[in-house]
Amino acid sequence: MPNTARWAATLTLTATAVCGPLAGSALAAPTPAPASLYAPSALVLTTGHGDGAEGVTPERAVTLSCAPTASGTHPAPVRACAELRASGGDFDALDVRDEVMCTKQFDPVVVTVDGVWQGRRVSYERTFANECVKNSYGMTVFAF
């Protein structure tokens, strides 16, 4: 009988040690999950030749997702996302590279951007004089 009492006491202490913390957390009110850990940033960028986006067939399209990590079919998503963050998502505020020398050839290139940037709907269109001028805006955002 003393062995039975010893085993019962051991089992009771073990159960209390293992299950005690679980019982305390079960009684606590659950913490609501946050709605989102980050604001979504997912864009589709297209390029094509013509005077305006209307009537221009896109020749190339890439995707760019910047949250939670930089990804997509854009050739340099990490650098493109960094440039967009630095400009606050303003495509017109992208830096122009001064060291780029472009010809004055007029072969208009249209870039469009549609999607979501940090939770806000984005729709952007810009016509550049030629491919070289397009690639001089920002280091990598429009270089695809």
Rank of each mutant, 00 (worst) to 15 (best):
P2N: 10
R6S: 00
R6I: 01
R6D: 00
W7M: 09
A8Y: 05
A9R: 14
T10R: 09
T14D: 11
T14P: 08
T14Q: 12
A17V: 05
G20S: 09
L22M: 13
L22I: 05
A23C: 12
A23Q: 15
A23L: 15
S25W: 15
A26H: 10
A26G: 14
A28N: 15
A29S: 13
P30V: 14
A33V: 10
A35H: 03
L37V: 07
A39Q: 10
A39I: 02
A39N: 10
A39P: 00
A42H: 09
L43E: 03
L45M: 07
L45G: 02
T46I: 01
T46F: 02
G48F: 11
G48W: 07
G50H: 11
A53K: 03
A53P: 02
E54D: 12
R60G: 00
A61C: 06
V62H: 00
V62W: 02
T63W: 01
L64E: 06
S65P: 09
A70L: 05
H74W: 02
H74V: 01
P75W: 13
A76G: 01
P77Y: 08
P77R: 03
C81M: 12
A82D: 14
L84R: 07
L84D: 04
R85N: 07
G88S: 06
G89I: 03
G89Q: 02
D92V: 08
R97P: 04
D98G: 13
E99T: 13
M101Y: 03
C102D: 10
K104S: 07
F106M: 04
V109W: 13
T112I: 06
G115A: 04
G115C: 01
V116M: 03
Q118H: 12
G119K: 15
G119H: 14
R121N: 04
V122L: 12
V122N: 04
Y124T: 10
T127C: 08
F128V: 11
F128Y: 15
A129C: 09
N130M: 08
N130A: 10
C132P: 02
C132Q: 08
V133Q: 09
V133I: 10
V133Y: 12
Y137Q: 06
M139I: 04
T140D: 09
T140K: 08
V141W: 15
